[in-house]
C-alpha cells in the first residue's frame, strides 16, 4: 500500500476502512422533496449498519430536493456517516467553496465531486445551468483547499481548511471507451481519493476497464467502489438501457428481467442479479468496495448486504 493511501486526509469512517484494506460498502440516501427531516431519519434508520457511508445526492437528475449538506448533517445526527455530493450545475466556484467550508464546519467529511446532471432532465428545465467549472476542476479545487489551504483563486484561507475525503465518479461504459481509464487518471491527478463507478450490469466490459486501470497502476492510487443497483422490473431495466445516459444493460440481463417480470418475480430476480454482480466484481483486482444505488428503494439495501455476506460491517 503506497504512502498516500495510508496518509489519513479526513478521518472519516469510510476513509479509515478503505485505508485499512477492508472491503467497503456505500449506498445511496436520497433527500426528500420537502423540508421534513424525519424522512431522512427514517431512511437512515433503515440503512444504519448496512453500509460504511451513505451518499446524499445533490438534487439528483436536476430535481429540487433538500440540500445535500443539510441532509448530511441530519444523517450524521442519526448516527450514520454521510458522503455529501456537490455538483457544478447550480453553483459557481464562489458558492461551491462557500458551501464546502460550511459543510466541513458541520462535521461532514466525505465529498463526492460531480459535474451534475443537465438541468434539462429535471423539474426546472428552464433554469440557467451554471457550469462555471467541471468535475475535474472541482476535485482539484477541493484538494487545493484541503492540501494547499488556498482558494481556487490562489488566495490563502484565513482559517482552518476543509478536510474532505474526496470522491469522484467515473463511467466505464461511456465513450470513447479507451479514454475512460485516462479520464480516471485525470481525476486522480486532480485529487480524487475514491471513485464510485456507474452502475455495472456488463461485467465483461467493467472487467476490461479495470484491466486498463490496473495496467496504468491507478487501482493503487485510488479506492474504486464498483457501482451496483438492483433492478425492480423489466420496465426499469428497459428504462435504464434506453433512457439513462451512459448505462450499459446487456441483453442477457434484459431477458432475465423480462422472464422474471412476467412471473411477477421482478424484484427477486433484480436482487439476485445485483448479488451476482457484487460477487463477480469482488473478485476483480483493484475493486475496493461496492456502492449500492437502490434509488428510492432503500429497503432493498439491508437484504442485499446481508445476502452478499457483507454484514455486519467492520469497524476501525
Amino acid at each position: 500500500m503506497i504512502e498516500n493511501r495510508s496518509d489519513i486526509k479526513s478521518g472519516s469512517n469510510l476513509e479509515k476502512l478503505l485505508r485499512s484494506g477492508k472491503f467497503a460498502v456505500t449506498a445511496e440516501l436520497g433527500p426528500p422533496r420537502g423540508a421534513d427531516r424525519s424522512a431522512i431519519e427514517k431512511k437512515a434508520k433503515i440503512l444504519k449498519g448496512y453500509g460504511d457511508a451513505f451518499n446524499i445526492t445533490d438534487c439528483q437528475t436536476a430535481v429540487v430536493r433538500m440540500s445535500s449538506i443539510a441532509s448530511g448533517r441530519i444523517v450524521l445526527d442519526a448516527g450514520v456517516e454521510p458522503i455529501i455530493q456537490m455538483t457544478c450545475r447550480d453553483r459557481n466556484r464562489i458558492a461551491i467553496q462557500s458551501d464546502l467550508l460550511g459543510a466541513a464546519a458541520l462535521g461532514l467529511k466525505n465529498l463526492l465531486c460531480l459535474t451534475g446532471d443537465h438541468q434539462k432532465f429535471g423539474d426546472h428545465p428552464m433554469a440557467k445551468g451554471v457550469f462555471d467549472i467541471d468535475s475535474v476542476q472541482l476535485i482539484q479545487m477541493v484538494k487545493t483547499l484541503r492540501d494547499e489551504k488556498r482558494f481556487q483563486s490562489g488566495q490563502e484561507l484565513k482559517a482552518s481548511e476543509p478536510k474532505f475525503f474526496i470522491g469522484a465518479a467515473e463511467n466505464p461504459f461511456a465513450d470513447p471507451f479507451k479514454f475512460r481509464a485516462v479520464r480516471l487518471a485525470k481525476k486522480i491527478a486532480a485529487g480524487a481519493d475514491f471513485i464510485q463507478t456507474q452502475i455495472i450490469y456488463n461485467i465483461k466490459k467493467f472487467h476490461e476497464w479495470m484491466n486498463m486501470v490496473a495496467d496504468m497502476g491507478l487501482h493503487e492510487k485510488v479506492f474504486i467502489l464498483a457501482g451496483v443497483a438492483p433492478l425492480k422490473s423489466a420496465g426499469m431495466a428497459k428504462h435504464m438501457k434506453h433512457n439513462v445516459p451512459g448505462m450499459d444493460v446487456p441483453d442477457e440481463v434484459m431477458s432475465r428481467m423480462t422472464a422474471a417480470s412476467a412471473a411477477k418475480k421482478g424484484k427477486e430476480e433484480g436482487i439476485k442479479i445485483c448479488l451476482e454482480v457484487i460477487e463477480q466484481v469482488r473478485e476483480i483486482r483493484g475493486v475496493a468496495g461496492v456502492h449500492v444505488m437502490a434509488v428510492e428503494w432503500e429497503e432493498a439495501v439491508p437484504e442485499i448486504i446481508q445476502q452478499a455476506r457483507l454484514f455486519p460491517r467492520p469497524t476501525v
Partner: peptide, 15 residues
Amino acid sequence: AKSLMNGPCGGSQNG
C-alpha cells in the same frame, strides 16, 4: 451542453 473543459463526461455514448 455543460461547457466542460475536461470532457467527455460519462454521458457520451456512441458519439
